[in-house]
Design a binder for these strands. Structure first.
Length: 654
RNA sequence: GCCUAUGUAGCUCAGUGGUAGAGCACUUCAUUGGUAAUGAAGAGGUCGUGAGUUCGAUUCUCAUCAUCGGCUCCA
C-alpha cells in the first residue's frame, strides 16, 4: 500500500500502482469524469500513470491552470495528427500550450498552407477527437527514438533528441500519431469538444533567425462548445477596444506614410489627453521632490560613446547626423540619461544635496525593426516620462521605495489594477553580458528585491531580464488582446555614473560616486495612452477626457444661450464643444454618446428661462435640471472623487 | 530584418482585363425639434507607389512603401 496526500492535507491509502484516475474515482465519480491529469509531487502526470510510492497528489481539472495547459498541449498533438493525415509530408517542430491555447510549429515541406486551410484542419481535428483515442505513454530508449524519427525523416525531432538523455525519453501515441513528448496528457481526445484554429504565422526553428522558418499554427480548444463561443465573443470585444481603431475613431492620433512608419502624429484631442496626463504626473513629481529639466533632441555622438550605448546600440540606431563643415556627428537622442548626467555635472555636489531628481518628458528616437512597429505601443519616436535620481549608495533602497509609491499612485489614479511587478535580475550563471562589478550587482539586486518586499508588491522574479547595466523592476499590464506590455520601469544603475565620472563630496571630504536610478511610471506617453485606451475602451476618466461636455441646444433659437453656458463652463476649465448642427436633439444625443462624451448638457426653453442645463450622463441618462453653477460644482466634485478616494493624495481640477 | 496576408471616397467595405459603387461622414435646401439616427438633393477616388505584360490594367506579373498576424530584437 502507498500513502497519498491530497491537497487538503488528508492522507489516503491505495494499492501500489494506483493511478490518479483511480484516486479520483475513489473520491467521486463526478470528479473522475473531469480529471484531465494530476500533479504528483509537483510534477504533472497523466491520470493513467501508476503511482508506485508515497506521494502528494493534486487532481487537475479544467479549472486548474495546469489542467488547461495539459488540455491544450494534448490539443496540439491532435492538431499534429490532423495535419499529418491531411499533409503526409509534414515535419513537426514543437507544439506547446500557451497562455490562451496552443500552437504547433510545422514544416509543410514546400506545400503551401494559408489561413483558408484552417477550417479543413479543424474539421479533421473534430473528427479525430470524436474517436476518443487515448494518449498512450511509452518510455523509449534514445537509440530507438532516433531510429524512429530517422525513418520518419523528421529533422526537428532528431534535433530535439540530441539534447535529451537516454532513459528519460517518452513517446506519446494517440490514434495513428506518435510524438516525442515529455507529457503529460489528458486521458483521451474525446475531452476536446470545441476547436478553433486562430491564425497562421511564421516562426524560426528554435527561435533562431539563422534556422529555417516554420509555419506556426495557433489554436484554442475547450471541453464545452459554449466556452469556445464565449471566448470568441471576448476576442470580438477585445478588437473593439483596440487602441489603433479607437485612436482613429476618436481622433486621438494618426500616422502618415509621408512622415514615416512608427512616427505618431498626435491630433488635437489626443494632445489634450496626453497633456492632462503629463501635468498630472508633473504635479505628483513636484510633490515627490523632482525638478523638471529640458534637453535637446540631438546630442553629440561622443556623449553616447561615453555612456556606452553607442557601442551596444549604435549600429542599430538611426544613422548619425553630420555637420557640413567640421567632421562632427550627432545622434538623434535615443535616451535622456546621458544628458541628465551632464546636467548633474554642471556643478559640484555635496552629499547633503543628494538625492537629486531630474525629470523630463523627453522625446527619444530609436530605430525599431520594421516588423516590430505596432500602433502606439511600438514606435520609432516617443516621449518618456523619464527621470534620473542621483543618490548616495545608502539612499538607494529608500529612493526605490519612493518611486514604487509614485508608480502605484499613478496606477491607482488611472484604475490599473491588473498589473504584474517583475523583478528582472541577471542570468543565473552567464554573467558575460553585464557590465559592473559582482559586488555592485549583488547589492543592487538585493536592494530591489527588499524594496519590493517592504512595499508588499506582488512580484515575479525573472532571471536573464536585467538591463546590461543593472537590475530593474518593471510593471507589466495586459492590453485588450491579452498581450503584455511593460509600462512603468525602475532601474538601478551603478555604471553610468562611472562612465560619466559623476561625483559628490562626502562628509569625509572625499569624492564619492553617486548611484543613478532611472525610472518612468508611464514608460512612454505613447504606450501608456495606448494601454489606457484599451483599458477603458475609450471611456476615459472624466478628468482626462479630451471633451468632457457637449452642449446640445434643442433648436437654433437657443444657440445664444448655449454659447453662454459653454463659455461659463469654459471659464471653469471644463472642456467640450457646442453641437450647433441643424439636427434634432435625439440625433445630437446619439452622436455625443457614440463619441463617448461624459456629460451632455441639453438647453432649451426651460433651461434658458431658469439659467440652467439639463444634464445627461453618458451611459446613464437624464440626471435632471441644474443651475449652471451647480453643475460646475457637481462636475468638479466628480473629478475630485476620481482623483482621490483610492490613495492619500488629492488633486483638484486642473 | 524574416515569413504569411492586405492596401478601392474622410471612415467601414462591395466590385470588374474595357478608365468604379454602397452605407456613414461632408455640403446645400426644407424642417425649429425635448433625451440614442428628420427628409431631399449634391459633392467627393489618376483603385498605395513605380515598372512590365496587353490594343487597353484598379483588375495579371514584378519591385517598392505602408499596414495586419507572428518570429527575432528592444537602451
Amino acid at each position: 500500500m502507498i500513502n497519498i496526500t491530497l491537497p487538503d492535507g488528508s492522507v489516503r491509502q491505495y494499492e501500489k500502482g494506483a493511478t490518479s484516475m483511480q484516486i479520483a474515482l475513489s473520491i467521486s465519480e463526478g470528479l473522475a469524469r473531469n480529471v484531465l491529469a494530476a500533479k504528483v509531487d509537483g510534477e504533472v502526470w497523466d491520470a493513467s500513470r501508476p503511482i508506485t510510492q508515497d506521494a502528494s497528489v493534486q487532481l487537475l481539472t479544467w479549472n486548474d491552470t495546469d489542467g488547461k495547459k495539459t488540455f491544450w498541449h494534448s490539443s496540439a498533438h491532435l492538431l499534429a495528427e490532423a495535419l499529418e493525415s491531411l499533409y503526409p509530408n509534414t515535419k513537426f517542430g514543437i507544439g506547446p500550450a500557451i497562455e490562451n491555447g496552443f500552437y504547433y510549429d510545422v514544416d509543410f515541406n514546400g506545400v503551401s498552407f494559408s489561413s483558408d486551410d484552417l477550417v479543413k484542419v479543424e474539421t479533421k481535428m473534430a473528427e479525430l477527437a470524436k474517436q476518443k483515442n487515448e494518449y498512450i505513454r511509452k518510455e523509449v530508449s534514445k537509440s530507438d527514438a532516433i531510429d524512429y524519427f530517422t525513418q520518419k525523416a523528421d529533422p526537428y525531432k532528431l534535433d530535439l533528441l540530441e539534447n535529451l538523455e537516454d532513459g528519460s525519453i517518452t513517446f506519446y501515441t494517440q490514434g495513428n500519431f506518435v510524438d516525442l513528448c515529455r507529457g503529460a496528457h489528458i486521458p483521451n481526445t474525446g475531452f476536446i469538444k470545441a476547436i478553433k484554429l486562430l491564425n497562421v504565422a511564421g516562426a524560426y526553428w528554435r527561435g533562431d533567425e539563422n534556422n529555417k522558418q516554420l509555419t506556426r499554427i495557433y489554436g484554442i480548444t475547450f471541453p464545452k462548445a459554449k466556452e469556445l463561443e464565449e471566448y470568441l465573443i471576448l476576442l470580438e470585444e477585445a478588437k473593439k477596444r483596440d487602441h489603433r481603431k479607437l485612436g482613429k475613431e476618436m481622433e486621438l492620433f494618426t500616422f502618415s506614410e509621408k512622415v514615416g512608419a512608427g512616427l505618431p502624429l498626435w491630433l488635437p484631442k489626443g494632445t489634450v489627453l496626453r497633456e492632462r496626463l503629463e501635468s498630472f504626473l508633473r504635479k505628483a513629481q513636484v510633490k515627490a521632490g523632482y525638478q523638471q529639466v529640458i534637453t535637446p533632441h540631438i546630442g553629440s555622438k561622443q556623449l553616447y560613446v561615453t555612456s556606452g550605448h553607442y557601442a551596444k546600440y549604435g549600429k542599430d540606431s538611426f544613422m548619425p547626423i553630420r555637420t557640413p563643415d567640421v567632421d562632427e556627428e550627432f545622434l538623434l537622442k535615443p535616451m535622456n540619461c546621458p544628458h541628465h548626467c551632464e546636467i548633474y555635472k554642471s556643478k559640484p555636489h555635496s552629499y547633503r544635496d543628494l538625492p537629486i531628481r531630474y525629470a523630463e518628458f523627453g522625446t527619444v528616437y530609436r530605430y525599431e525593426q520594421s516588423g516590430e512597429l505596432h500602433g502606439l505601443t511600438r514606435v520609432r519616436g516617443f516621449t518618456q516620462d523619464d527621470a534620473h535620481i542621483f543618490c548616495r549608495p545608502d539612499q538607494v533602497k529608500d529612493e526605490f521605495k519612493k518611486v514604487i509609491d509614485l508608480v502605484l499612485y499613478v496606477f491607482n489614479a488611472l484604475g490599473f489594477e491588473d498589473y504584474t511587478a517583475q523583478i528582472s535580475l541577471r542570468h543565473q550563471t552567464d554573467r558575460s553580458k553585464y557590465i559592473g562589478s559582482e559586488e555592485l550587482w549583488e547589492r543592487a539586486e538585493s536592494e530591489i528585491t527588499e524594496a519590493a518586499a517592504e512595499k508588499n508588491l506582488k512580484t515575479v522574479v525573472e532571471y536573464d531580464e536585467a538591463a546590461f547595466y543593472g537590475p530593474k523592476l518593471d510593471f507589466m499590464v495586459k492590453d485588450a488582446l491579452g498581450r503584455k506590455w511593460q509600462l512603468g520601469t525602475i532601474q538601478v544603475d551603478y555604471q553610468l555614473p562611472n562612465n560619466f565620472e559623476l561625483e559628490y563630496t562626502g562628509a569625509d571630504n572625499l569624492k564619492h560616486r553617486p548611484v543613478m536610478i532611472h525610472r518612468a511610471p508611464f514608460g512612454s506617453m505613447e504606450r501608456f495612452v495606448a494601454v489606457l485606451i484599451e483599458h477603458c475602451a475609450g471611456n476615459f476618466p472624466l478628468w482626462l477626457a479630451p471633451e468632457q461636455i457637449a452642449v446640445l441646444p434643442i433648436s437654433e433659437k437657443y444657440h445664444d444661450y448655449a454659447k453662454e453656458v459653454f463659455l461659463a463652463l469654459q471659464e471653469r476649465d471644463i472642456r467640450g464643444f457646442m453641437d450647433e448642427r441643424d439636427e434634432k436633439i435625439g440625433r445630437k444625443i446619439r452622436d455625443a454618446e457614440v463619441k463617448k462624451i461624459p456629460f451632455m448638457l441639453i438647453v432649451g426653453e426651460k433651461e434658458q428661462a431658469e439659467g440652467a442645463v439639463s444634464v445627461r450622463k453618458k451611459g446613464e441618462g437624464d440626471l435632471g435640471m441644474m443651475k449652471i453653477a451647480d453643475f460646475a460644482e457637481y462636475f468638479s466634485g466628480e473629478v475630485a472623487k476620481l482623483l482621490s478616494g483610492k490613495k492619500e493624495e488629492t488633486t483638484t481640477l486642473e
